[in-house]
Design a protein around this nucleic acid. Structure first.
Ligand SMILES: [Mn+2]
Ligand SMILES: [Mn+2]
Ligand SMILES: [Zn+2]
Ligand SMILES: [Zn+2]
Lengths: 139, 139
DNA sequence: AAATATATTGTAACGATTACAACTTTTATA
DNA sequence: TATAAAAGTTGTAATCGTTACAATATATTT
Protein backbone atom coordinates (compact mmCIF):
# COMPACT_ATOMS: atom_id res chain seq x y z
CA UNK A 1 0.00 0.00 0.00
CA UNK A 2 1.86 3.07 -1.24
CA UNK A 3 1.27 6.71 -0.35
CA UNK A 4 -1.03 7.28 -3.34
CA UNK A 5 -3.30 4.46 -2.27
CA UNK A 6 -3.37 5.83 1.25
CA UNK A 7 -4.31 9.23 -0.08
CA UNK A 8 -7.11 7.70 -2.07
CA UNK A 9 -8.32 5.75 0.91
CA UNK A 10 -8.45 8.83 3.13
CA UNK A 11 -10.33 10.75 0.46
CA UNK A 12 -12.74 7.86 0.07
CA UNK A 13 -13.48 8.22 3.77
CA UNK A 14 -14.04 11.98 3.45
CA UNK A 15 -10.79 12.84 5.17
CA UNK A 16 -8.73 15.60 3.64
CA UNK A 17 -5.28 14.05 3.18
CA UNK A 18 -2.93 16.52 4.80
CA UNK A 19 0.73 15.61 5.16
CA UNK A 20 0.39 14.74 8.85
CA UNK A 21 -2.70 12.63 8.26
CA UNK A 22 -1.01 10.73 5.46
CA UNK A 23 2.02 9.98 7.60
CA UNK A 24 -0.05 8.89 10.58
CA UNK A 25 -2.27 6.69 8.48
CA UNK A 26 0.74 5.24 6.70
CA UNK A 27 2.31 4.35 10.04
CA UNK A 28 -0.87 2.61 11.17
CA UNK A 29 -1.13 0.62 7.96
CA UNK A 30 2.52 -0.37 7.70
CA UNK A 31 3.47 -1.01 11.31
CA UNK A 32 0.38 -3.07 12.17
CA UNK A 33 1.43 -2.72 15.82
CA UNK A 34 -1.78 -1.18 17.19
CA UNK A 35 0.05 1.84 18.60
CA UNK A 36 -1.04 4.21 21.33
CA UNK A 37 -1.19 7.92 20.50
CA UNK A 38 2.01 8.38 22.45
CA UNK A 39 3.92 5.68 20.56
CA UNK A 40 2.74 7.08 17.25
CA UNK A 41 3.99 10.50 18.28
CA UNK A 42 7.39 9.19 19.35
CA UNK A 43 7.77 7.19 16.16
CA UNK A 44 6.88 10.06 13.84
CA UNK A 45 8.29 13.13 15.55
CA UNK A 46 11.78 12.48 14.20
CA UNK A 47 10.56 12.46 10.65
CA UNK A 48 8.09 15.31 11.24
CA UNK A 49 9.78 17.57 13.80
CA UNK A 50 6.88 20.02 13.91
CA UNK A 51 4.37 17.31 14.85
CA UNK A 52 2.39 17.94 18.00
CA UNK A 53 0.76 15.35 20.21
CA UNK A 54 -2.56 17.16 19.95
CA UNK A 55 -2.49 16.62 16.20
CA UNK A 56 -1.96 12.92 16.75
CA UNK A 57 -4.98 12.79 19.03
CA UNK A 58 -7.08 14.93 16.70
CA UNK A 59 -6.12 12.81 13.73
CA UNK A 60 -6.78 9.48 15.39
CA UNK A 61 -10.17 10.68 16.62
CA UNK A 62 -10.97 11.84 13.11
CA UNK A 63 -9.99 8.48 11.62
CA UNK A 64 -12.25 6.68 14.08
CA UNK A 65 -15.14 9.08 13.48
CA UNK A 66 -14.88 8.65 9.73
CA UNK A 67 -14.53 4.89 9.94
CA UNK A 68 -10.97 4.78 8.60
CA UNK A 69 -9.54 3.25 11.78
CA UNK A 70 -10.80 1.50 14.87
CA UNK A 71 -10.24 2.17 18.53
CA UNK A 72 -8.94 -0.80 20.49
CA UNK A 73 -9.64 -0.84 24.23
CA UNK A 74 -7.66 -3.96 25.10
CA UNK A 75 -5.52 -1.93 27.52
CA UNK A 76 -6.91 -0.63 30.77
CA UNK A 77 -5.24 2.76 30.68
CA UNK A 78 -4.32 3.61 27.09
CA UNK A 79 -6.22 3.53 23.84
CA UNK A 80 -4.76 1.84 20.79
CA UNK A 81 -5.59 2.28 17.12
CA UNK A 82 -5.81 -0.02 14.13
CA UNK A 83 -6.23 0.84 10.45
CA UNK A 84 -7.35 -2.72 9.72
CA UNK A 85 -11.15 -2.48 9.71
CA UNK A 86 -11.73 -6.10 8.76
CA UNK A 87 -13.23 -8.41 11.37
CA UNK A 88 -10.36 -9.92 13.31
CA UNK A 89 -9.39 -10.62 16.91
CA UNK A 90 -6.61 -9.19 19.07
CA UNK A 91 -4.32 -11.03 21.44
CA UNK A 92 -2.30 -9.10 24.01
CA UNK A 93 0.72 -10.73 25.60
CA UNK A 94 0.80 -10.04 29.34
CA UNK A 95 4.58 -10.29 29.32
CA UNK A 96 5.87 -8.24 26.39
CA UNK A 97 2.70 -6.19 25.92
CA UNK A 98 2.57 -6.70 22.14
CA UNK A 99 -0.85 -6.85 20.51
CA UNK A 100 -1.24 -9.44 17.75
CA UNK A 101 -3.97 -9.97 15.18
CA UNK A 102 -5.67 -13.30 14.68
CA UNK A 103 -8.31 -14.38 12.17
CA UNK A 104 -11.82 -14.78 13.42
CA UNK A 105 -14.91 -16.57 12.25
CA UNK A 106 -17.36 -14.06 13.63
CA UNK A 107 -20.44 -15.95 12.56
CA UNK A 108 -19.51 -18.60 15.09
CA UNK A 109 -19.83 -16.14 17.95
CA UNK A 110 -22.79 -13.92 17.21
CA UNK A 111 -25.41 -16.42 18.25
CA UNK A 112 -28.63 -16.63 20.20
CA UNK A 113 -27.86 -14.90 23.46
CA UNK A 114 -28.04 -11.28 22.48
CA UNK A 115 -31.73 -10.66 22.23
CA UNK A 116 -32.62 -8.05 19.65
CA UNK A 117 -29.45 -6.05 20.16
CA UNK A 118 -28.42 -4.24 17.00
CA UNK A 119 -24.69 -4.93 16.75
CA UNK A 120 -22.51 -2.28 15.13
CA UNK A 121 -19.05 -3.13 16.43
CA UNK A 122 -17.34 -6.21 17.71
CA UNK A 123 -14.16 -6.43 19.71
CA UNK A 124 -12.61 -9.78 20.54
CA UNK A 125 -9.72 -9.44 22.96
CA UNK A 126 -7.69 -12.37 24.29
CA UNK A 127 -4.84 -12.10 26.76
CA UNK A 128 -2.08 -14.46 27.81
CA UNK A 129 1.45 -15.32 26.77
CA UNK A 130 2.71 -15.05 23.22
CA UNK A 131 4.80 -17.72 21.58
CA UNK A 132 8.09 -16.03 22.25
CA UNK A 133 7.40 -15.19 25.90
CA UNK A 134 6.37 -18.77 26.64
CA UNK A 135 9.78 -19.88 25.35
CA UNK A 136 11.55 -17.40 27.64
CA UNK A 137 9.62 -18.69 30.65
CA UNK A 138 10.64 -22.29 30.06
CA UNK A 139 14.31 -21.45 30.48
CA UNK B 1 -26.61 -15.04 47.13
CA UNK B 2 -26.82 -13.76 50.71
CA UNK B 3 -24.14 -11.99 52.72
CA UNK B 4 -22.89 -15.26 54.28
CA UNK B 5 -22.28 -16.79 50.88
CA UNK B 6 -20.46 -13.67 49.78
CA UNK B 7 -18.29 -13.83 52.88
CA UNK B 8 -17.46 -17.45 52.13
CA UNK B 9 -16.67 -16.63 48.53
CA UNK B 10 -14.27 -13.86 49.45
CA UNK B 11 -12.53 -16.12 51.98
CA UNK B 12 -12.30 -18.85 49.37
CA UNK B 13 -10.42 -16.33 47.21
CA UNK B 14 -8.06 -15.42 50.06
CA UNK B 15 -9.67 -12.03 50.59
CA UNK B 16 -10.29 -11.02 54.18
CA UNK B 17 -13.98 -10.08 54.25
CA UNK B 18 -14.02 -6.63 55.82
CA UNK B 19 -17.28 -4.72 55.95
CA UNK B 20 -16.38 -2.50 53.00
CA UNK B 21 -15.27 -5.42 50.90
CA UNK B 22 -18.44 -7.34 51.62
CA UNK B 23 -20.60 -4.39 50.65
CA UNK B 24 -18.66 -3.71 47.47
CA UNK B 25 -18.73 -7.34 46.43
CA UNK B 26 -22.41 -7.59 47.29
CA UNK B 27 -23.12 -4.60 45.07
CA UNK B 28 -21.23 -6.15 42.18
CA UNK B 29 -23.05 -9.45 42.55
CA UNK B 30 -26.54 -8.07 43.00
CA UNK B 31 -26.54 -5.09 40.64
CA UNK B 32 -24.97 -6.93 37.70
CA UNK B 33 -24.54 -3.53 36.10
CA UNK B 34 -20.77 -3.65 35.51
CA UNK B 35 -20.17 -0.43 37.43
CA UNK B 36 -17.24 1.93 37.25
CA UNK B 37 -15.37 2.67 40.49
CA UNK B 38 -17.07 6.03 40.59
CA UNK B 39 -20.58 4.63 40.24
CA UNK B 40 -19.87 2.06 42.93
CA UNK B 41 -18.72 4.84 45.22
CA UNK B 42 -21.80 6.96 44.57
CA UNK B 43 -24.12 4.02 45.10
CA UNK B 44 -22.55 2.93 48.38
CA UNK B 45 -21.52 6.16 50.06
CA UNK B 46 -25.02 6.81 51.37
CA UNK B 47 -25.12 3.48 53.13
CA UNK B 48 -21.46 3.69 54.22
CA UNK B 49 -20.84 7.40 54.83
CA UNK B 50 -17.18 6.87 55.78
CA UNK B 51 -16.38 5.15 52.48
CA UNK B 52 -13.55 6.66 50.49
CA UNK B 53 -13.00 6.41 46.79
CA UNK B 54 -9.48 5.12 47.33
CA UNK B 55 -10.94 2.15 49.18
CA UNK B 56 -13.19 1.42 46.25
CA UNK B 57 -10.20 1.42 43.89
CA UNK B 58 -8.07 -0.62 46.30
CA UNK B 59 -10.83 -3.15 46.78
CA UNK B 60 -11.61 -3.56 43.10
CA UNK B 61 -7.94 -4.02 42.30
CA UNK B 62 -7.71 -6.63 45.05
CA UNK B 63 -10.73 -8.50 43.70
CA UNK B 64 -9.19 -8.61 40.23
CA UNK B 65 -5.78 -9.70 41.57
CA UNK B 66 -7.34 -12.50 43.56
CA UNK B 67 -9.56 -13.63 40.72
CA UNK B 68 -12.82 -12.72 42.45
CA UNK B 69 -13.83 -10.17 39.82
CA UNK B 70 -12.90 -9.21 36.31
CA UNK B 71 -11.89 -5.93 34.77
CA UNK B 72 -13.95 -4.90 31.75
CA UNK B 73 -12.34 -2.49 29.28
CA UNK B 74 -15.32 -2.00 27.01
CA UNK B 75 -15.20 1.76 27.69
CA UNK B 76 -12.46 3.93 26.30
CA UNK B 77 -11.99 6.07 29.38
CA UNK B 78 -13.29 4.22 32.43
CA UNK B 79 -12.79 0.74 33.77
CA UNK B 80 -15.75 -1.41 34.75
CA UNK B 81 -15.92 -4.41 37.02
CA UNK B 82 -17.87 -7.66 37.04
CA UNK B 83 -18.16 -10.28 39.77
CA UNK B 84 -19.39 -12.81 37.22
CA UNK B 85 -16.28 -14.80 36.32
CA UNK B 86 -18.05 -17.22 34.01
CA UNK B 87 -17.35 -16.97 30.30
CA UNK B 88 -19.85 -14.56 28.83
CA UNK B 89 -19.94 -11.61 26.44
CA UNK B 90 -20.74 -7.95 27.00
CA UNK B 91 -22.84 -5.66 24.87
CA UNK B 92 -22.65 -1.91 25.36
CA UNK B 93 -25.44 0.29 24.07
CA UNK B 94 -24.04 3.39 22.37
CA UNK B 95 -27.17 5.32 23.28
CA UNK B 96 -27.95 4.63 26.93
CA UNK B 97 -24.49 3.35 27.84
CA UNK B 98 -25.75 0.27 29.67
CA UNK B 99 -23.61 -2.86 29.54
CA UNK B 100 -25.51 -6.13 29.14
CA UNK B 101 -24.37 -9.75 29.49
CA UNK B 102 -24.96 -12.32 26.83
CA UNK B 103 -24.18 -16.06 26.75
CA UNK B 104 -21.25 -17.18 24.69
CA UNK B 105 -20.02 -20.38 23.16
CA UNK B 106 -16.34 -19.69 23.54
CA UNK B 107 -15.21 -22.90 21.90
CA UNK B 108 -16.36 -21.39 18.61
CA UNK B 109 -13.79 -18.62 18.86
CA UNK B 110 -10.60 -20.13 20.13
CA UNK B 111 -9.76 -21.76 16.84
CA UNK B 112 -6.90 -22.04 14.44
CA UNK B 113 -5.76 -18.48 13.94
CA UNK B 114 -3.94 -17.83 17.15
CA UNK B 115 -0.80 -19.78 16.70
CA UNK B 116 0.62 -21.16 19.93
CA UNK B 117 -0.65 -18.29 22.02
CA UNK B 118 -1.42 -19.38 25.57
CA UNK B 119 -4.80 -17.82 26.30
CA UNK B 120 -5.56 -16.82 29.89
CA UNK B 121 -8.38 -14.31 29.49
CA UNK B 122 -11.03 -13.61 26.93
CA UNK B 123 -13.09 -10.48 26.49
CA UNK B 124 -15.87 -10.32 23.94
CA UNK B 125 -17.28 -6.82 23.59
CA UNK B 126 -20.06 -5.86 21.19
CA UNK B 127 -21.46 -2.38 20.75
CA UNK B 128 -24.58 -1.03 19.15
CA UNK B 129 -28.16 -0.23 20.14
CA UNK B 130 -30.06 -2.08 22.84
CA UNK B 131 -33.61 -3.21 22.40
CA UNK B 132 -35.12 -0.26 24.23
CA UNK B 133 -33.04 2.41 22.49
CA UNK B 134 -33.93 1.01 19.06
CA UNK B 135 -37.59 1.48 19.98
CA UNK B 136 -36.98 5.10 21.00
CA UNK B 137 -35.27 5.79 17.69
CA UNK B 138 -38.22 4.53 15.64
CA UNK B 139 -40.48 7.21 17.09
C1' DA C 1 -2.63 -4.45 77.49
C1' DA C 2 0.98 -3.84 74.20
C1' DA C 3 2.77 -4.77 69.90
C1' DT C 4 2.07 -5.88 65.22
C1' DA C 5 -0.32 -6.33 61.03
C1' DT C 6 -4.03 -4.99 58.11
C1' DA C 7 -7.52 -1.83 56.34
C1' DT C 8 -9.11 2.74 55.43
C1' DT C 9 -8.79 7.57 54.66
C1' DG C 10 -7.68 12.21 52.53
C1' DT C 11 -4.69 14.55 49.78
C1' DA C 12 -1.37 15.04 46.39
C1' DA C 13 0.61 13.30 42.24
C1' DC C 14 0.33 11.10 37.82
C1' DG C 15 -0.79 10.10 33.08
C1' DA C 16 -3.87 9.95 29.18
C1' DT C 17 -6.87 12.80 26.82
C1' DT C 18 -9.34 17.06 25.69
C1' DA C 19 -10.36 22.18 25.51
C1' DC C 20 -9.06 26.24 23.75
C1' DA C 21 -7.05 30.19 21.76
C1' DA C 22 -3.23 31.59 18.75
C1' DC C 23 -1.08 30.74 14.57
C1' DT C 24 -0.27 28.73 9.88
C1' DT C 25 -1.65 26.78 5.66
C1' DT C 26 -5.06 25.85 2.20
C1' DT C 27 -9.08 27.00 -0.44
C1' DA C 28 -12.55 30.09 -2.18
C1' DT C 29 -13.87 34.62 -3.75
C1' DA C 30 -13.37 39.06 -5.95
C1' DT D 1 -3.25 38.26 -7.83
C1' DA D 2 -4.99 40.16 -3.55
C1' DT D 3 -8.28 39.28 0.07
C1' DA D 4 -11.21 36.74 2.87
C1' DA D 5 -12.81 32.54 4.78
C1' DA D 6 -12.10 27.84 6.06
C1' DA D 7 -9.45 24.14 7.64
C1' DG D 8 -5.37 22.26 9.94
C1' DT D 9 -1.81 22.52 13.50
C1' DT D 10 0.40 23.92 17.70
C1' DG D 11 1.44 24.71 22.74
C1' DT D 12 -0.44 25.18 26.99
C1' DA D 13 -3.72 24.58 30.42
C1' DA D 14 -7.49 21.99 32.12
C1' DT D 15 -9.94 17.67 33.00
C1' DC D 16 -10.63 13.22 34.66
C1' DG D 17 -9.70 8.46 36.05
C1' DT D 18 -6.44 6.25 38.74
C1' DT D 19 -2.47 5.58 41.88
C1' DA D 20 1.06 6.87 45.54
C1' DC D 21 1.71 7.85 50.00
C1' DA D 22 1.67 9.02 54.70
C1' DA D 23 -1.52 9.34 58.61
C1' DT D 24 -5.11 7.17 61.15
C1' DA D 25 -8.17 3.53 62.56
C1' DT D 26 -9.28 -1.24 63.19
C1' DA D 27 -8.21 -6.08 63.80
C1' DT D 28 -5.09 -9.73 65.19
C1' DT D 29 -1.34 -11.67 67.75
C1' DT D 30 1.69 -11.85 71.68
MN1 LIG E 1 -5.61 -5.48 14.40
MN1 LIG F 1 -20.87 -9.46 32.84
ZN1 LIG G 1 5.08 -11.78 24.64
ZN1 LIG H 1 -29.71 1.52 25.09
Amino acid sequence: MDIKEIEGFLKFNKIKPSHHRLKIYEYLVKSKNHPTADLLYRELVNEIPTLSKTTVYNTLNLFVEKGAAQLITIDESENRYDADMSIHGHFKCKDCGKVFDFPLNFAAIDMGGLQNFQVEENHIYLKGLCNECQAHKKK
